[in-house]
Design a protein around this nucleic acid. Structure first.
Lengths: 247, 247
DNA sequence: ACACTTAGTGTCTCCAGTACACAATCTAAT
DNA sequence: ATTAGATTGTGTACTGGAGACACTAAGTGT
């Protein structure tokens, strides 16, 4: 049986036009945008108005243009929909069931993004029309296969959280250890021991006291910490140049 | 600014034809097929004959058809190129730089697969024309972005190897502990302590003595083990139904 | 000044990872 | 039959991180 394959370059007898005529498949990017308001973990959604999913929350996404890289597309979508540049962004995986989109064959490449609520609500942002933060605990149905995608994104986030300090992308510059612990508990879903948590985090040498204290709380104020930039640069430099941690 | 988005279903004013006209982008699947001959870790490649990569090794891949899921496409390609059904198969990630393919815009979704050499060389297989196993240590250049893809696949394999017993997909039914250790050392790239390795593996309760011994070796023969199917079913069932471990 | 709320701290136990050396079993050669 | 050569197979002691656990400190509001 003769081989002919324009992808791998065996026995070429085709050119650009062949490829474009092959492509009855559209490619989209969908982003699971996680936000944290010091209370709950939320996802940015919009309301779908396409049958049969009308009214259900949907992830933020768009088709990929012919002249932009996948990562660029994700970045563009985030910029368009949240107004923020330089979010933390990481590819998860691609979903390509034939019938996943009612209007035709659309393969979607998914990303997850982390947003500080303080950035999202700051000046200069232009949130998508009708976009809405929904707490993960409140989501039980979504349009398309987006609930599945969201769950995969959450798994990825959980794994990642234990590997490197991406949590910094969800917290303000100054934060307290109890706040950090609450973030962990919210994402991982199980309560943690206060003393062991502090011991562990401090031993990583990734944060340092800022000298400041909490204000306007009706109880003993917590010390505020911030990320140790030197350590960060040394061991987790990919978290500085924000977008796209490859590997 | 008005929103209009056929992906998420805001203000729909388009239908199937719109999507297909949008798609100037082709989608391919490329597989990093790992094989192990009890000596080295190898990758199945074919020779590219497309400029400017003529002569370089290329991964096994093909365009995705309009009517097949991504996973089905990967499975089809593996079947076509190795003749084997039911390989272990797992999606890695997608690569979509605009200029990654000289013939046009092609986004590729990549998978890695694990093959026992004994399966590959058994009857009934119909390997791709000109396909060739190349030891990872011998690869320093590949066509397209395939070297990058291969490296990402190797990273994924290394991580996975420490999480679950996918190594069984690279070994014969009966294998010795020294053989298993050599496989680990080959993939991870660092030598391991014999006693600690055995202690660790045996403590997992995932393998059991087969009763047999090595034959035809010019030294003390090793005991042969095989995978404990009950334990496997209980804790790693996704390794049984071979293809596609999601999550 | 007292009650209330949350922050902050140290020790002990247990287990998993690591380092490490010698006896046992087979083949091949003499 | 004995010996040399090769590789398999085995146990113990040390170390460091994870986990369990209870009280004092520092603020606020009344």
């Amino acid at each position: 049986m003769e081989e002919k394959n324009i992808i791998t370059g065996e026995n070429i007898n085709s050119h650009l036009k062949d490829i474009e005529e092959h492509s009855k498949i559209a490619v989209s990017v969908d982003c699971v945008i996680f936000g944290y308001d010091m209370e709950e973990l939320k996802v940015l959604t919009i309301s779908c108005n396409m049958d049969p999913y009308k009214g259900l929350p949907s992830l933020i996404g768009d088709l990929v243009n012919e002249y932009e890289d996948l990562d660029q597309a994700a970045k563009r979508i985030l910029k368009e929909r949240t107004g923020i540049d330089n979010l933390y962004l990481e590819q998860i995986k691609s979903f390509g069931k034939v019938d996943r989109h009612p209007l035709g064959r659309v393969i979607t490449v998914t990303y997850f993004a982390l947003v500080k609520k303080e950035d999202y609500t700051s000046n200069g942002t232009r949130p998508a029309v009708n976009s809405k933060w929904i707490a993960l605990s409140q989501i039980n149905e979504m349009a398309f296969d987006h609930l599945n995608i969201t769950n995969v994104a959450l798994d990825t986030l959980r794994k990642k959280l234990l590997e490197c300090p991406i949590w910094m992308k969800l917290l303000p510059v100054d934060f307290s250890l109890p706040e950090l612990q609450h973030l962990f508990e919210t994402i991982i879903g199980i309560p943690l021991d206060k003393r062991n948590f502090r011991k562990k985090i401090l031993s990583l040498d990734i944060i340092q006291e800022s000298g400041k204290k909490q204000k306007d709380v009706p109880h003993r104020p917590a010390n505020l910490y911030r990320v140790n930039q030197k350590k960060l640069k040394k061991e987790y430099s990919f978290l500085l140049k924000n977008p796209f941690h490859h590997g």
